[in-house]
Write a protein that binds this DNA or RNA. Structure first.
Lengths: 213, 213
DNA sequence: GTCTATATTCAGATAGAC
DNA sequence: GTCTATCTGAATATAGAC
């Protein structure tokens, strides 16, 4: 095999990208300077251009890595379920794995959130396309769950998607490891998403009312 | 009365601030130049400094206006309810008014989202303080609802707050007037927040299971 | 591969005329 | 109040030594 290991260039490239994610996350697109990225990566500014031909190429790589990481995690989590799993089970796996990925790759997640809308139009288009492809996974899941009667039929799927993803993605903004465990938060989110806020007595009354009709 | 109307300076100041919100929203903190803001406001760059002594002062005003607008809208909506209203009613009013304010003041909402974390530390501190004060309104509401037994007791209030606010605030990112009406979306969000995703039959089964214990 | 220059462009902010 | 003109610092990107 020609390349069995990472070359020195691969290692440096990854370091530069990780540094980029950190700085883009903190300072946005225009606020990030190649000097700051270089410092964070332990290089000099000029050296970055050996790995990325421009700032745009760097930010594109960060964005791309961000979606891909989450996407991979979520699709693996769903694929790992037994085939007999219900759609609600699958949704739970998706919520849990998306949330944990957003937190684990927080530099990339937050960098994406922050610089999307600030990057040049062509970079944004490529990234939006990729993000929509990942979104398809959710659409199909939600649609299937609805057709199977496992989730309510009176709510728009696209809206549901935005709602869930919006809530989950914003978690990287405030999550501090240590306060609550990641699993704990994911479980509470699941309860909210699936069961909603209403308390059991109220829920029972609502259900009774609906069934009385 | 000394000032019965807005002075010319007031009018210009507001124009500059609105222009600032638009540009900060689109390009982030560092990506926004005083020249771009001036263009948008129909002035020359130098003239901005008559109204705001620095870029930081401008961004601080935009952030401050953003929270204040939403806060005012939400507290008025709650105050307008009959005193006999349930906590769930109040929550519904809060969700609806927060959502509609975020959409109505979308330049300010999105500018805040995007530049928070990019602005100088002292500006960020002031804004975070104000945002937390607004958050108190939600904490108190959610706590009261829980104590009254109207919402489930097995979920952390702070988490619930982040969940709801995260979902609502992200709406400014994708909302396009015309597709769905604002009220329609707000209603669907309410259904999700209060009742959750689960369909009526599943909900009934869950409730029955819980009551059987 | 990474370094030390350096060119070129453009930003925030000020001064003073109108 | 708004303009024009300009100072000063800092950014991206390149060139060429090591």
């Amino acid at each position: 095999m020609p390349e069995e290991k990472q070359t020195k260039a691969d290692v440096s490239r990854e370091k530069v990208m990780a540094a980029g994610a950190r700085i883009f996350r903190e300072r946005g697109y225009a606020g990030t300077t190649m000097r700051l990225v270089a410092d964070e990566a332990g290089l000099k500014a000029g050296s970055l251009y050996y790995h990325f031909h421009s700032k745009d190429e760097l930010v594109a790589a960060v964005l791309e890595t961000g979606v891909r990481s989450v996407w991979t995690r979520v699709s693996h989590a769903i694929a790992a379920l037994p085939p007999s799993s219900s759609y609600v089970d699958r949704l739970q796996a998706a919520v849990h794995s998306h949330f944990s990925a957003v937190v684990d790759y927080e530099d990339y997640s937050l960098a994406s959130r922050r610089v999307f809308g600030q990057v040049p139009a062509d970079v944004r288009r490529r990234y939006a396309k990729q993000r929509n492809e990942y979104g398809q996974l959710w659409f199909e899941l939600l649609n299937a769950a609805r057709e199977a009667g496992e989730i309510r039929a009176d709510i728009d799927i696209k809206l549901t998607y935005w709602f869930i993803i919006g809530a989950l993605n914003s978690s990287a903004e405030w999550y501090h490891p240590g306060e609550n465990s990641l699993d704990d938060i994911a479980d509470q989110f699941l309860k909210l998403i699936i069961g909603g806020l209403e308390s059991a007595p109220i829920k029972a009354r609502m259900v009774a009312k609906r069934q009385a009709k």
